[in-house]
């Protein structure tokens, strides 16, 4: 469960709000695609949800925990895949997963099974002894996703998660996202690939210039726009805003 209530953020002395009075409520069992043009406020919103930035106004709750007032509990409830997987590059794959397991307090017996299973699913078993530095972009993306899934958090927050993934890994991740939502959990992800959003999401939130300009089910959105594709709708609703 992810709730944003009237959240706003302004950077420095700017008079323009990067995020302006944004409200969203995402219940369990939903996959929500967060789409918008560059500079629309997607990253700022995700940064506020994950505690990287504090909102100037409004409140954000993850599984009932306020990210500002009760940050540690809120952070335990979500798993975050940042847009760049280039982190901890001098750790080996296995070292990284153990580190993430420790940070999220994953019991060692559970951890063993999950690492083995995730490594097999993402075809990474043979690479866990190598440093992340030697991985391709896609492999780095996979190991970061594995680190997040190790904890099996109820809320997944993914920033452009498909970037760099090979078709098989992208398919696997999409299947996992569906299964996670089907189990009553929440998946919130940003993407520029509208086909992915169209095929995967139960609901989309379109942000432009810091404001949500549409939030609802895809069918509803399409019905409003004479059943044209999401790409065409996106071009229409963000044009001239």
């Amino acid at each position: 469960m992810l709730t944003l209530r009237n959240v706003s953020k302004t950077y420095g002395n700017s008079s323009v709000k990067a995020v302006d009075g944004l409200s969203l409520e995402i219940g369990g069992g939903q996959i929500v695609g967060f789409i918008g043009p560059n500079g629309a406020g997607k990253t700022t919103t995700i940064k506020m949800i994950t505690g990287i930035l504090n909102p100037d106004e409004g409140a954000i709750e993850i599984d009932g925990h306020d990210i500002v007032k009760n940050p540690l509990e809120a952070k335990k409830s979500f798993g975050y895949v940042p847009d760049s997987p280039d982190m901890f590059l001098r750790l080996k794959g296995m070292e990284y997963l153990n580190f993430m397991g420790d940070m999220y307090r994953v019991d060692v017996s559970v951890r063993k099974e999950r690492i083995a299973s995730l490594a097999e699913t993402f075809e990474m078993t043979g690479s866990l002894n190598a440093k992340l530095q030697s991985y391709s972009h896609g492999m780095r993306q996979k190991i970061i996703i594995m680190g997040v899934l190790l904890n099996q958090p109820s809320v997944w927050i993914l920033d452009e998660p498909m970037t760099g993934l090979d078709p098989r890994a992208a398919f696997t991740l999409k299947e996992m996202m569906r299964a996670h939502a089907k189990a009553g959990n929440t998946v919130f992800f940003s993407t520029h690939i509208l086909e992915v959003a169209e095929k995967l999401c139960d609901r989309v939130a379109i942000i432009n210039k810091g404001k949500i300009i549409f939030d609802g089910e895809l069918d509803e959105l399409k019905a409003r726009h004479d059943q044209i594709s999401l790409e065409e709708i996106f071009m229409e609703v963000t044009d001239g805003e």
Partner: peptide
């Protein structure tokens, strides 16, 4: 990166998972 490292087996993955405390 350095030279390619030795590949891990599934058994090594199971034994390699360990906890150290935060």
């Amino acid at each position: 990166s350095s030279a390619p490292s030795r590949k891990m087996t599934k058994e090594e993955v199971l034994t390699g998972a360990r906890s150290s405390g935060i």
